[in-house]
């Protein structure tokens, strides 16, 4: 049976992990490569790096991180943040990313989704969607790291990018992100019930039952979390055992 995937996500700024960490055996707590290696050993199903480096001049710092991670972690690695065009995708893949996530650039130029999927394969292209509830059961796409509202309906948009060749959708609830109050499962369900590609749930995880709800209520194919892992609240192993105890198929 296909397993539900657990994906730890690291925010990387100028080649350094942004959020604090408490792993005792880390030589350098701010080194994303070291953290990736630990997550890999703990049984993460995939890894995700989100580059939040403000200046595009400093983006190359991420490439070295991607390269070293790919040399040490033999699980899929998704990299996103500031991906604007085919050249950006090509560079990340060349340095060892397995998938590249595109956010604002796909909204600005929807043709990029089809071009990227055709050139690199659907399996390589993740479309990241930042969603905010603007009226009851209505979600709009936001861009530029959530600062800019568009008039685009999330469900319609997800359907469109899936048809154009996106291999999966990374769906972040801006209402829930950072709140630790659980995924927006209504949003997740609205998308997973209409869109035929896998959906990764993101934004709001605070405890183990939130993860279970994302699968049972939101029907997500994969769960992405940052802070619950970074701050050592739960290990990947604990998450997986909890889900397995609740009859969710996971890779242990």
């Amino acid at each position: 049976m296909l397993k539900k995937r657990i994906i730890p996500c690291l925010d990387v700024d100028n080649g350094r992990v942004v959020k604090g960490v408490n792993f005792i055996d880390l030589v350098d707590a701010g080194d994303p490569v070291e953290q990736a290696i630990i997550y890999n050993a703990e049984g993460a199903d995939e890894l995700c790096f989100l580059d939040i480096t403000a200046s595009s001049d400093n983006r190359d710092t991420l490439l070295e991180v991607v390269k070293k991670t790919a040399e040490n972690c033999f699980i899929p690695l998704t990299v996103g943040g500031g991906v604007r065009n085919l050249e950006d995708i090509s560079r990340l893949l060349h340095f060892g990313a397995d998938k590249v996530s595109i956010n604002t650039a796909a909204v600005d130029n929807i043709d990029l989704v089809a071009e990227a999927a055709k050139k690199y394969g659907s399996s390589t292209i993740v479309i990241a969607v930042d969603a905010k509830e603007t009226a009851e059961n209505q979600w709009k796409v936001f861009t530029h790291g959530g600062r800019k509202e568009t008039n685009i309906d999330v469900v319609t948009y997800c359907n469109e990018v899936a048809k154009l060749g996106a291999g999966e959708i990374l769906l972040t609830s801006m209402d829930r992100d950072g709140t630790k109050s659980g995924f927006d499962n209504k949003l997740l369900k609205a998308v997973t019930s209409k869109v035929n590609v896998p959906v990764i749930a993101s934004g709001g995880v605070g405890n183990l039952s939130h993860l279970l709800d994302g699968i049972l209520e939101g029907e997500a194919s994969a769960l992405l979390a940052a802070s619950i892992f970074h701050f050592g609240e739960y290990s990947i192993g604990e998450v997986k055992r909890y889900l397995a105890d609740n009859n969710i198929p996971v890779r242990i």
């Binding site: 049976m1 296909l2 397993k3 539900k4 995937r5 199903d45 659907s122 399996s123 291999g167 999966e168 035929n196 590609v197 896998p198 959906v199 194919s221 994969a222 890779r251």
Partner: peptide
């Protein structure tokens, strides 16, 4: 879902 994506 298609693609068949993940650990099986």
């Amino acid at each position: 879902k298609i693609p068949h994506m993940g650990w099986n």
